[in-house]
Write a protein that binds this DNA or RNA. Structure first.
Lengths: 230, 230
DNA sequence: CTCGGAAATATTGTATACAAAAGTGCACAT
DNA sequence: ATGTGCACTTTTGTATACAATATTTCCGAG
């Protein structure tokens, strides 16, 4: 299911001029690939990212690979120690307790910002939540959950806020992929989304904010329970 | 007043092994240097960052320079367009309207998190605010303002939150350096800090949060007025 | 004189080279 | 047998090389 990372290169190592393409953003492709592996769990916390091995495997040089890893470091997915290179960031209950409340507050802010426009997206929210309720796989559920929240905050014009939320959501996805592979909690989340929608419909933003916060904090508690069980 | 960027190299280009030092973090030094130039206004919005010119001027190769610039891009100080390189990010009232409310919310969250511990730092807040009141230069005022807010949120153990706030504060500093070089607004800010302290002393966190938000939104309004005047 | 376009130049994105530090394993002493 | 030091290998951090694209220059047509 990986994007393949194809690169049209048939020439020998010292003669890469046969290759064209690479629209000048290999580093972005690499970041996406590595991020995917981390979120999907192929790369686990603590794994060492050997530059030579990875650059060979991905058929690129170390330069854009390092740039991609530095990007991921800034996003919190990877650590780098001097002269020791990059390591996949460890998962921890502490990080969970930091991240969930943070994204909750940021989404609440986005909702507050865009309160007047929210009626526009209520139909979308209803539709996505219905699909969410019908999701049969954990992966699709996570996708629709993300889509629902993205729709909720999509009216906010604050670019910084949007970028932060996007990154935090990926951080969360990493945990949920690992610990929430069952679908038992979907129904609860669907109900919570329903609550939020109900509040929005009657224009009660404060209640919607409370319900949104509850949605995140409840998910956090469920996740922490699962993590504690291991 | 620049950190000098000294690098002990006297050898010819192809024989740099004469140099020692560089504890394996030239890229971090470069980021700090560039960030300083951007915040201080030496590099203005829209300025093109020519890699060859800069690497020559800073006596480093393009590799760590690019890594530093990519870091700054992630922090929002620099833009990069494909095949067109890096450019210093433009200042705008729109960005101000995005950034100030964001940092306000995040600091409010930090205060809420650490409410029980806040009594510990009240004496520090009082002392720093007194020094702030006596500040005679805009630079020192900004420094003490930052220190005051750092102290206020320093009890929050949320590392992600702290990192976000730190970055946003630098973003703000860039605007304040350019538009608030007078000291007329210090007295007002001192008074607002005093309000916050008063609320904290009587344990009224909600009021403290409101006052904190007001402190930021008021500063934002003042800044927007100045920007509008140009 | 201005506009358009091709050659010349400059700049970026990626690949490779090189030096220093970190990691590994083996020999040897105890 | 075990611990320790030292040579060898690996890996990182930085420098440089190279190819492709973008920018500039300069010349001729209108």
């Amino acid at each position: 299911m990986k994007p393949a990372i194809t690169q049209p290169r048939s020439a020998k190592p010292p003669a890469p001029r046969g290759g064209r393409a690479t629209h000048g953003r290999i580093r972005e492709r690499l970041r996406a690939e590595l991020l995917d592996r981390i979120v999907k769990g192929d790369l686990k916390g603590g794994d060492k990212l050997n530059e030579l091995r990875l650059s060979g495997e991905l058929k690129v040089s170390r330069t854009p690979l390092r740039e991609a890893m530095l990007h991921l470091e800034r996003e919190g997915f990877v650590r780098s120690d001097v002269r020791r290179g990059f390591t996949v960031g460890e998962l921890s209950t502490r990080d969970v307790r930091e991240t969930y409340p943070l994204i909750a507050q940021l989404e609440m802010m986005a909702v507050r910002n865009s309160a007047p426009m929210l009626s526009l997206v209520i139909p979308d929210l209803v539709r996505i939540n219905a699909a969410f309720a019908r999701a049969r796989t954990a992966q699709r559920a996570r996708h629709l959950d993300t889509l629902w929240h993205d729709t909720l905050i999509g009216q906010s014009k604050n670019a910084r806020l949007a970028a932060m939320v996007a990154t935090l959501r990926l951080a969360i996805e990493r945990y949920e992929h690992l610990y929430m592979s069952d679908t038992t909690l979907i129904a609860l989340s669907v109900a919570q989304h329903g609550d939020i929608i109900k509040c929005l419909k009657r224009g009660d933003i404060d209640a919607a904010l409370k319900a949104l916060e509850h949605n995140y904090l409840f998910s956090m508690q469920a996740l922490l329970r699962k993590m504690g069980e291991e």
